Simulated scan of single mutants.
Amino acid sequence: MNNQNERLKRPRWVSAVNMLLHILVCQCGRTEGITVAAAGSTTNVTVGQRVLFPVLPEGNQTVIIELTFKSIIVVSWFSKSKSPKLLKSYERRIDIQEDGSIRMNKVQLSDSGLYQIKTHYMSVKPPLKPPKYSRFHLQVFERVSKPNITAECRRNNISLSCSSIRGNEVTYSWETLPAGGNDSCLHLGQTMEIYPLPPSESTTYTCTAKNPVSRATSDPIDLGVCSIQQPRDGRWVSALCGLSALFLIGLLIFFYKRNH
């Protein structure tokens, strides 16, 4: 009797666990490295991940499932044959799950775009069920690499530039922290111009690069050592300009007195 009770309880326990996992997948969108695409919205994924396009046919009916991308049929699957027809370039990257859902492996940047799943019901009894359409927008991102800062010491200012060699759709921001201070300043953009010249106290600058799937921060750079001074030749130029002006004024005075 106890054994029979345990057998009756076990399916309920298993069903509860499966339901919990299903809720987690729907809410979080990720499980075991798989991103579940959400119909009618944009799903962000990282290069190399796996994406699951859920297929939920209504009832236990015979169906034909088609996944199209850029108006091209990527995979066509007939529920009775169990053998999908794949576009040649996707043969090693697409799998059909037991429930008919379509899994794409090792996504690439070129996989970004709009996908459509058509579920065509093959019922032989009226009324005929119209086909069902589900649309998914997939956006693939490459993780950003650690950015580097380059500083150009100019005559009147310092130009800072931040760049990351890897990543797409990257945005940049700067953080400035004065020496001995706790209050930092933020600046948006890939470049930053510093006016006026930095004070003698050292100031630390860091740059952060990010996109919807990753972020990375550069090593700090201290611009206290970036001393901007006018070249020595500039003093001679200033002196010559002053002497020329005095000479010109003297000539004007001489000719004025001579004429009178």
Score class of each variant (00 low, 15 high):
67 L>N: 02
34 I>D: 09
237 V>F: 12
147 P>G: 01
233 D>V: 12
90 Y>M: 14
80 K>C: 03
180 G>T: 10
162 C>A: 03
182 N>D: 14
30 R>Q: 15
21 L>T: 02
24 L>H: 15
66 E>N: 09
195 Y>T: 13
46 T>Y: 00
41 S>H: 00
40 G>M: 09
66 E>Y: 05
112 S>D: 04
204 T>E: 10
52 L>P: 01
181 G>Q: 15
250 G>A: 15
1 M>L: 13
142 E>H: 11
60 N>Q: 11
230 Q>N: 04
124 V>P: 11
182 N>K: 06
6 E>Q: 13
26 C>A: 10
231 P>H: 03
88 K>F: 10
85 K>Q: 02
191 T>Y: 02
34 I>C: 04
196 P>Q: 05
168 N>W: 00
70 K>N: 13
120 H>W: 06
116 Q>T: 10
137 H>D: 06
194 I>G: 07
155 R>T: 05
140 V>E: 05
222 D>F: 13
102 I>M: 04
153 C>L: 09
40 G>T: 08
199 P>M: 01
96 I>L: 07
222 D>A: 12
10 R>C: 09
168 N>K: 06
156 N>G: 14
246 L>D: 00
54 P>K: 02
6 E>P: 00
259 N>R: 10
15 S>H: 09
98 E>R: 14
187 H>L: 08
250 G>D: 15
139 Q>R: 08
70 K>P: 00
174 W>Y: 12
146 K>C: 08
204 T>H: 13
132 K>E: 11
54 P>T: 07
30 R>E: 15
70 K>T: 11
58 E>I: 07
180 G>A: 00
8 L>W: 10
90 Y>W: 14
25 V>F: 01
70 K>D: 14
77 W>C: 05
72 I>S: 06
42 T>H: 00
78 F>T: 10
97 Q>W: 02
230 Q>D: 15
154 R>S: 06
217 T>F: 03
75 V>T: 02
